[in-house]
């Protein structure tokens, strides 16, 4: 790939996803590009790029899937889960609610470890769980991982932070190295595709009490980060919370949210609705 081809490809990725790849990531981009050229039988950059731009046989989706990072595990950064049950949800239920539904969004959800972790954590650690209808939704731009999330089959590494008791309670071992989530739990979580920089897509998911949006905004440039933050703001109910990854700070992205410091985590809150004066 020459300089011009690399630049055109990176511009394409940026326009479609908000992800920024610079010369420093050239090897990463070239590897994935080569994989897709091989998979589609394309013999040159020009022929593959034409195929991509025309979205022949859903190539855009396949291409974006190849660029996402999906390494995660259950109970990752569980101090935020502790914060969810100890601070965020108790605050969400303080005010009178029109209904008994609590909505939580895990985006990006990768292969499902995060939304399933939220579900298990709440069943185990939030005493009020039975008094509410808890709706957990997992979304990701990578449609391939959503299929894996729905299947709910995980390897040993993904379960390394879970106790033997929790594994026995919520999983069925399928072979020496794999465990499948029990049907009740798998069927309780919804999964959907979403592009965080497309407002029409994020709005379709409705408004949430809590959003987990961890370790994705770091891949965006400033402008896309702001757009994603604005979209997520719309997806939060007034007073709702958003949790970012440990190295991310919403304060550096947008002034839309208030910072909330709790004993287990720093999270960001959409202010309650108010009128001027």
């Amino acid at each position: 790939m020459n300089e011009d081809e690399f630049r055109r490809l990176c511009e394409f990725i940026y326009r479609r996803t908000g992800m920024v790849f610079t010369e420093a990531k050239r090897y990463y981009v070239e590897r994935r590009m080569a994989d897709r050229m091989l998979a589609t039988g394309s013999t040159s950059f020009a022929s593959y790029f034409a195929r991509l731009r025309s979205d022949v046989r859903g190539e855009v989706e396949q291409f974006i899937n190849a660029f996402t990072v999906n390494e995660t595990y259950f109970y990752r950064e569980d101090h935020q889960l502790q914060c969810l049950s100890a601070d965020l949800l108790p605050r969400r239920i303080l005010r009178p609610r029109a209904n008994k539904t609590i909505r939580i969004w895990s985006v990006p959800c990768s292969t499902g470890e995060e939304p399933y972790s939220i579900a298990i954590w709440l069943l185990e650690n939030w005493p009020q769980a039975d008094a509410y209808e808890i709706e957990i939704l997992g979304s990701d731009i990578d449609t391939r991982v959503l299929d894996a999330a729905r299947a709910g089959l995980f390897g040993r590494r993904a379960l390394m932070r879970l106790s033997a008791d929790l594994i026995a309670k919520y999983f069925e071992q399928t072979d020496a190295e794999h465990w499948r989530l029990i049907d009740d739990l798998r069927q309780s979580i919804s999964f959907s595709p979403v592009n965080l920089v497309e407002a029409a897509e994020t709005r379709a998911h409705g408004a949430f009490d809590v959003i987990f949006c961890r370790n994705v905004l770091i891949y965006f440039d400033d402008a896309s980060r702001r757009t994603a933050a604005e979209n997520l703001y719309e997806n939060l109910l007034p007073g709702g919370f958003i949790c970012l990854g440990h190295s991310e700070s919403m304060s550096r992205i947008s002034p839309l949210f208030d910072v909330c410091r709790y004993s287990d985590a720093i999270v960001y809150q959409r202010p309650m609705e108010r009128a001027d004066g």
Partner: peptide, 14 residues
């Protein structure tokens, strides 16, 4: 189990 799946209304577009 308190976990539910629902179809929820979208956020209002401007």
């Amino acid at each position: 189990m308190p976990l539910v799946r629902k179809s929820t209304a979208a956020v209002d577009a401007p």
